[in-house]
Amino acid sequence: MTDITLVEAVNLALMHEMARDPDMVVLGQDIGINGGVFRATVGLLEKYGEERVLDTPLAENMIVGAAVGMAAQGLHPVAEIQFMGFIYPTIDQMVSHASRLRNRTRGRITCPMVLRAPYGGGIHAPEHHSESTEAMFAHIPGLRVVIPSSPTRAYGLLLAAIRNPDPVVFLEPKRVYRLMKQAVEDNGEALPLDTCFVLRPGSDITLVSWGAMLHETLQAAEQLADEGIDAEVIDLATIKPIDMQTILESVGRTGRCVIVQEAARTCSVSAEIAARLAEEGLMSLFAPIRRVTGFDTVMPMFRLEGHYMPSTERILSAVRQTMEFA
């Protein structure tokens, strides 16, 4: 067992499942000989050949449309879109077809596919490469949306996504693709797709986040500990469905909650969590729920992205305000 990065864990899961499942194919742009622009599919072509590792023509909508057709036949396609900013042509397929094929045939035809894409800012990439628009997919009935935050969870959640009988959007936080290494055992064990992960237990305040922002959120929790504030940190992991039970249980104990996300604020996943806390957990709250988010602006090009992305300082400030409220 060696220490590997998040992107290597993605690769490990793909390799594992290709060996186990002859119905699995991977398709996308530059995923073959190039191994993907982030190298997530490196080695797959050499091992599994052109029949199962498909470099496609350059058309995102077509990649996902073809994946829908493959999945309808019972294959398990894993389609890669190079960046979240290029995923929008696929929304027609995901919303109008992938998400509802099972429903509109009452289960006769299903769509066991995975749509993978790196997302989020912070790597000084060109325009259109840095967005966090997970809420668009989270809004769509029939889809699942999954965001790993570490190598171990990337491995286990991706295996679960590929094995899931319904379409899963699997968004990879590219800022942390190579930020940390973890020991990941290639044991083929999938993680649940409807459960949060408590990364740090605490009793004073609940911090909920997902993807790359957990890095800053955990840093904030460490600093808060020095100040005598014991923060619980929850990795949401599955954006849809949301495991509210774990969050409600935590907030029931702490009475305070700050939600941290990179995405723009309005109609976002943090808004959904806050609404459900208000609906189901209001009486356990000592202070208003606060959100630390990206702004409702266009994701700026990289000279300003540092001002856009929630910083550890912004998280600390929100936590202190929440703690001081009552």
Binding site: G65, V68, G69, M70, A72, H97
Partner: peptide, 10 residues
């Protein structure tokens, strides 16, 4: 139409 291509691939 693109789904048809996926089915035909399968």
């Amino acid at each position: 139409t693109t789904q048809a291509a996926g089915v035909a691939f399968a």
